[in-house]
Amino acid sequence: MQDLGIQVLFEGINFERLLKGLWISLKLGLISMLFSVILGLLLGCVMAGKNRIIKFLCRVYLEIVRIMPQLVLLFLVYFGAAKHFGADISGETAAVIVFTFWGTAEMGDLVRSALISIPKHQYESGYSLGLSKLQLYVNIIMPQTFQRLLPSAVNLLTRMIKTTSLVVLIGVVEVVKVGKQIIDASRYDNPKAALWIYGTIFLLYFAVCYPISKLSSALERRLKV
């Protein structure tokens, strides 16, 4: 039988190493997502407010984030900050900063649209029942907002995870880098390693993102009923 080269996955701890590498990207994604959700909730509330100047500033921030590719932002922080602050920012830190910056804008916009999608009569009915402002928000507005927010927030998580794959380009040792090391190590005895390693990484990402995006669409369907 012809040598397929698939054994590269099972040599030593190669597969385990790949998984560990994947975990590094996922960790970056999850940390950034956590910050983004917290800051995004605040930003969304601010954006749904009435102050025109603040609204305008938020709009500008949102547009900048929407227009600039995330990789450009990564370069700006990673190379720019290293030069100006003399600080040797690690790739990981730069990634968390950038993805939080990006995620906060996206999350803020989601929160804003969820907030303004609550019909006005919900507020009015609440008040007419004699609820205080706090009661109104805690018991009526917030639960509905969260319900509407959840599918798109979960969807943002998959986008975040997909975006963290960029960190290999600023030198973070994650799944792709580990894959490259394995390929380089077995260059002579297994020339087909690249196919299997990159194929595996491809499927690993799929295995992570697919369930999350299924969850997101399931939540969305439940919302529609």
Binding site: T158, K162, T163, S165, L166, V168, L169, V176, Y198, G199, I201, F202, Y205, F206, C209, Y210, S213
Partner: peptide, 11 residues
């Protein structure tokens, strides 16, 4: 939809 472009490119 569930894989990043950069991984698709590497593959």
């Amino acid at each position: 939809r569930n894989t990043p472009l950069i991984i698709q490119l590497f593959f």
